[in-house]
């Protein structure tokens, strides 16, 4: 069973978690054009690498960020987000 370090609950089986994709900056929907919005909605950075991702620990209701190597499936570190805006800086 693969283990994921939750910043609040420590190492837990990965089946307790929910993956919510890469942390990405959202363009201002009132000011960007349709093409930029479509790019945000649909396109992804699908190539492998070390990525910052949103994860959710379901039993404790904890959203946090994990830095993960998507080739080796190795979690490098996890932390609670301050605010979505702060994360994107």
């Amino acid at each position: 069973m693969k283990l994921m370090p939750c910043p609040v609950n420590g190492l837990r089986p990965v089946s307790e978690f929910f993956y919510w994709g890469e942390v990405r900056p959202m363009p201002d929907p009132d000011r960007c054009d349709d093409a930029a919005w479509a790019d945000y909605v649909f396109n992804r950075n699908g190539a492998p690498g070390i990525k910052k991702e949103w994860w959710y620990h379901t039993p404790s209701g904890t959203w946090f960020i994990a830095e993960r190597d998507t080739i080796r499936d190795e979690v490098l570190r996890t932390w609670l987000h301050a605010s979505p805006e702060a994360e994107q800086q």
Partner: peptide, 13 residues
């Protein structure tokens, strides 16, 4: 599988 991965490992789960 529930999350992104560029690998062909398989799991007991």
């Amino acid at each position: 599988d529930p999350y992104e991965l560029h690998s062909t490992r398989s799991t007991l789960d």
